[in-house]
């Protein structure tokens, strides 16, 4: 336990999440993965947007950045490209990542920039008290879907893969050990990695939809998922309508910052010791 606690800003605890919320489980899984990899605290930067999930970095003892709604990946892109030696992790939610931040998500994936994105998908906007999100299943209730959500959801993992992410996995707060493994794999992958973590919001999603409290919601998550490896050998009727969990896509590709560094190596002028004040800035000079 002590090797985990050292990654927390313990003076910032307790956290603001509701009793039974799954975000602590996901945050715990991230910290356990970091502890396993023995990452240097001074070389990790955690970035978030807005929402319940995005409060997580405030409790973690790294350089942490709580940004504007949907923009975590764009801020993180600046940090990573400016300091490629840092391990940059984005913690985001289903609304933050797939609605307002959708464009940054697909473009970060397309660039294959070395950022690990953990999407805490609780199928609802929690911070603003229960509106439907792009990840609220069709027919489910939210405060802005009083007659049932008429919209379809994204398959976030397929979206990530199609956009160019080179590591994609789905875990859940029920399968906590598997989630640690998946995040560990994502952190060691060089390129854009995504772990969608299905998690529970008993306060709004569970209550509004009469699914129950945290325990019932965890059961619900368990029932609607099936391990990707098992699914490969199960009869189709046992897999139909279920979300696959586990490692879903891995396809190492050249990473964006590495590619940019190759350009620098080609064009950088070779004189030594210059700083801003003595730069050659002649246009089209070479």
């Amino acid at each position: 336990m002590s090797d985990i606690l050292k990654y927390f800003r313990q003076d910032r605890l307790p956290h603001i999440w509701c009793p039974g919320c799954g975000h602590g489980t996901v945050t715990g899984a991230l910290v356990r993965a970091i502890a396993r990899l023995k990452l240097d605290k001074n070389k990790v930067c955690v970035v978030s947007g807005i929402g319940c999930s995005s409060r997580a970095p405030g409790y973690l003892d790294f350089d942490t950045l709580h940004t504007a709604h949907g923009r975590a990946l764009a801020f993180a892109t600046g940090i990573k490209l400016a300091r490629p030696d840092l391990k940059v992790i984005v913690m985001t939610g289903d609304g933050d990542c797939t609605a307002i931040g959708g464009n940054h998500f697909i473009h970060a994936a397309r660039r294959n920039i070395d950022i690990t994105t953990i999407v805490m998908n609780n199928n609802i906007y929690g911070m603003t008290s229960g509106q439907y999100s792009p990840m609220t299943p069709k027919g489910f209730l939210g405060t802005t879907a009083p007659y049932g959500n008429p919209e379809r959801t994204f398959d976030l993992c397929k979206l990530a893969e199609a956009a160019g992410a080179t590591y994609v996995a789905r875990g859940t707060s029920f399968h906590a050990q598997m989630l640690i493994d998946l995040i560990e794999q994502a952190l060691t992958h060089r390129g854009f990695s995504v772990v969608e973590a299905l998690t529970q919001c008993p306060t709004y999603f569970g209550r509004k939809n009469k699914v129950g409290g945290a325990v019932e919601l965890l059961e619900w998550i368990k029932e609607r998922t099936v391990n990707a490896k098992a699914a490969a050998v199960l009869p189709p009727e046992k897999v139909a309508g279920k979300l696959l969990i586990g490692e879903l896509h891995k396809n190492p590709q050249p990473e964006f910052c590495d590619e940019y560094d190759k350009i620098i190596a080609q064009v950088q002028r070779k004189f030594e010791g210059f700083r801003g004040g003595v730069r050659g800035c002649e246009q089209n000079s070479d």
Binding site: V47, D63, L65, T67, A68, R71, A74, F75, A76, T77, G78, I79, K80, L81, A82, R83, L86, N103, H104, H107, Y260, I263, I264, V267, Q268, R269, F274, R279, G280, D286
Partner: peptide, 27 residues
């Protein structure tokens, strides 16, 4: 910029552009 070891990135929109420069400035 690459000639002096700096970085350039064309973002997906101006929202991303200002976000990225704030991130870079923090480093």
């Amino acid at each position: 910029l690459p000639k002096v070891g700096g970085k350039f990135v064309q973002m997906e929109d101006e929202i991303g552009s200002i976000a990225a420069i704030i991130g870079a400035s923090l480093t």
